[in-house]
């Protein structure tokens, strides 16, 4: 497995998929200011799989939205793939999101009157992919996610787990170099979580860069690196590794009696 480590010093600057400097975002309501993201510096290398954890209100989703251009920072800079993007107009962001950034949210946000297949193909067609190629890629993705038999179903006819996998396929169809996922397993049971995790791991192995917000420690522990956000600031940033005993047994966690 070729995984660039989380240590920024060891890699050339042009390897950074994402670089953020002194990012600030506040929300003002009823005369009060709440700081969602305070002076965050962050660097994510190409091919890294990074999880962001932290209590609700810590600024995790806001950070992700800023990085995907869904929201604008008050100050600070964002470089995507070596290009400054925080000052781009919305139209250019839209193009970036179509071509280079895939987005998955906790709720799948599928277009309700379109089939699963059309939902997945749509971003490819919008990006100018020839219809035949879009269809082939869609078939590939749905098969990989075990959904080939659901291609003609509308979202309402799919279970929550299936909808989420369709949303993931949609986010991946343009082979984005960066995948941003906000609680992608937040509404899923443990089996569906496992399927989504498996696909994310496969994307990771293929070299896609993944930035994922999650409460789920199992999801976070599949990442190479976990960032803990607290009160809009990075409280910790660390690689995840196997424990010294290589995994051990459940007795390391719960005491078994008898």
């Amino acid at each position: 497995m070729s995984r660039p480590g989380p240590s920024p010093a060891s890699t050339a600057p042009e390897q950074a998929m994402l670089q953020v400097k002194d990012l600030v975002k506040a929300y003002r309501a009823d005369g009060a200011t709440s700081w969602a993201v305070r002076h965050v510096d962050l660097r994510v290398d190409r091919g890294e799989f990074v999880a962001i954890m932290g209590p609700s209100g810590a600024g995790k989703s806001t950070l992700l939205h800023l990085l995907g251009g869904l929201d604008r920072p008050d100050s600070g800079q964002i470089w995507l793939d070596g290009r400054r993007v925080d000052d781009l107009p919305e139209s250019r962001w839209a193009v970036l999101r179509r071509r280079s950034i895939g987005f998955v949210f906790q709720f799948s946000n599928l277009v309700s009157n379109m089939t699963a297949a059309d939902n997945v193909e749509l971003p490819a067609l919008l990006a100018g992919t020839p219809p035949r190629q879009a269809r082939e890629r869609r078939e590939e993705l749905l098969t990989e996610l075990g959904l080939e038999h659901k291609a003609r179903s509308t979202p309402a006819a799919l279970s929550g787990g299936e909808q989420q996998r369709v949303a993931l396929a949609r986010a991946l169809i343009n082979e984005p170099s960066l995948l941003l996922a906000d609680e992608p397993t937040g509404s899923l049971d443990s089996r569906n979580t496992r399927d989504v995790l498996r696909l994310l791991s496969r994307c990771h192995e293929r070299g896609q860069t993944i930035l994922l917000v999650t409460h789920d420690a199992r999801v976070a522990s599949t990442a190479d690196r976990v960032i803990s956000l607290f009160d809009g600031e990075i409280a910790d940033d660390s690689a995840v590794s196997l424990p010294a005993n290589g995994g051990g047994t459940v007795a390391d966690v719960v005491q078994l009696k008898g």
Partner: peptide, 18 residues
């Protein structure tokens, strides 16, 4: 807290592997 969190996450990774 940071040290303990890292420890738990590493154990979690071990359990996933298990």
């Amino acid at each position: 807290i940071n040290k303990q969190r890292r420890h738990y996450l590493n154990i979690m990774r071990g359990l996933s592997r298990l």
